[in-house]
Design a binder for these strands. Structure first.
Lengths: 239, 239
DNA sequence: TTCTCTACGTCAACGTCGTTGACATAGCCT
DNA sequence: AGGCTATGTCAACGACGTTGACGTAGAGAA
């Protein structure tokens, strides 16, 4: 039996597990998210998920074809949350900044899923709505179509790229994550000033700055440059 | 025995394996890169690596503490290749642009490895050399230390983020990659102008632009903004 | 109410993985 | 020439994703 999944709308029998839990796809997705949030990204295994659900691990395969299938379902949930209740304010720069930070934050909240989802183009409704919103902000602000498309492309890929990058740091197995964080203090802060003068001169600043995500600053740089280009073609900040 | 690794510079005895291969850390890294490139990221397991090397899988643990340690070495090798034979020209903007494009290109050449490696901080020699080079370019150009560190951070993470994003597109299984590329023509180009006016108005530009990497344009935006900030503190373009 | 059908939870097993303790041998150094 | 030990090998552990087989209990039909 290579496929034991019954499509959700056709489900009829809701049989409780030995421990009295009634399973649903939604409950499994929520439990998976909780597992990641509480015990780290590497806590998401089928066996642990089964234990957390109060069910046999293999019961998960009645709802999802594979762990990858499950993770995509989780990711789908994230895309919706990032956009939930967003409204344009009329200030294009503030709007883009808000959208970027929302995308980033939504993925940060669930790094493991973000890693699988960030680099796919789905073409589904949530994604289309986001594309339309961003393009709308840019064109309404006065960007010519060609420039609007290019800024859109850079903006979106920058957001997703940073989202994946920062999510990966959170999704690493605990020892690897700790090692990555230690590198700046343990290695770079101790390099010889003779061989690495620039690192030595900025070691303190580096160890501080590298602890945070570089995204907010990079986003501001991108918006700076976009604003300059908009001004060059005669557009205004508000509009 | 929790650590069976002998540091590379202290190695003396070069004992061949049963199949006559003389192992080195370098050979193992190269073989890992080849394995990933030929059979995908999932092909990188200690057992398969042993088979490809002509050695017992556990021999790898005489050279690397863990698979994660090996992966960091692979990542550092990619960084090293990106920096190979690079020389500063004195034009900070041209230098940063060249470094960024080199990093991007090096990772594109090994997409599967890039997916595993782009998100890690290795702290090894090649990475340290790259950090030193980039910081040197910025500080020599006249960026104050704090600003230099922030621009460095944004620059590196943006480069790695785009590298991973674009590598992911190349590393996808063929049908999934084709599907992702088709989305722009098959879905977005056909959206109703009533519900998605901005997408409809720019559909042609979108389908053209989304076929390329957004990195070069995003890089130029970042450099634009950095240049503006440098000018604001009194620096010059050449220097 | 009873009967039937089958959805779905459970169990056990397979082959894989990373990793490590124990062992043996062969290369380097004195 | 001889000893030390680096390094390759072997076997085993526990955890992983996944799947075939089984039985029971829930829903719908009568």
């Amino acid at each position: 039996m290579t496929d034991r999944v019954v499509p959700e709308p056709e489900r009829r029998r809701r049989r409780p597990t030995k421990r009295g839990i009634v399973l649903t796809a939604e409950l499994i997705v929520d439990t998976a998210l909780r597992l990641i949030g509480q015990h780290g990204a590497d806590a998401l295994t089928v066996r642990r998920l089964g234990a957390a659900l109060g069910a046999d691990p293999s019961a998960v395969y009645r709802y999802f074809h594979s762990t990858d299938d499950l993770l995509l379902a989780v990711a789908d949930e994230l895309i919706g949350r990032a956009q939930h209740a967003w409204q344009p304010t009329g200030d294009w720069r503030a709007d883009l900044r808000a959208i970027g930070l929302r995308i980033h934050a939504a993925y940060q909240a669930h790094p493991q899923a973000a890693l699988l989802a960030a680099h796919r183009t789905t073409g589904r409704t949530h994604e289309a709505a986001a594309v339309e919103a961003i393009l709308g902000v840019l064109r309404t602000a006065g960007f010519p179509d060609l420039e609007a498309v290019r800024v859109y492309h850079a903006f979106v890929d920058q957001s997703l790229g940073f989202a994946a990058l920062d999510a990966a740091a959170l999704a690493l197995p605990a020892p690897a994550a700790a090692a990555d964080r230690q590198v700046w203090q343990a290695s770079y802060a101790r390099l010889d000033a003779a061989t690495h003068p620039h690192i030595a001169a900025t070691a303190d600043l580096l160890t501080t700055d590298m602890r945070r995500s570089g995204y907010p600053y990079a986003l501001d740089l991108l918006l700076d440059a976009a604003e300059a280009r908009l001004r060059a073609v005669g557009g205004k900040r508000e509009g």
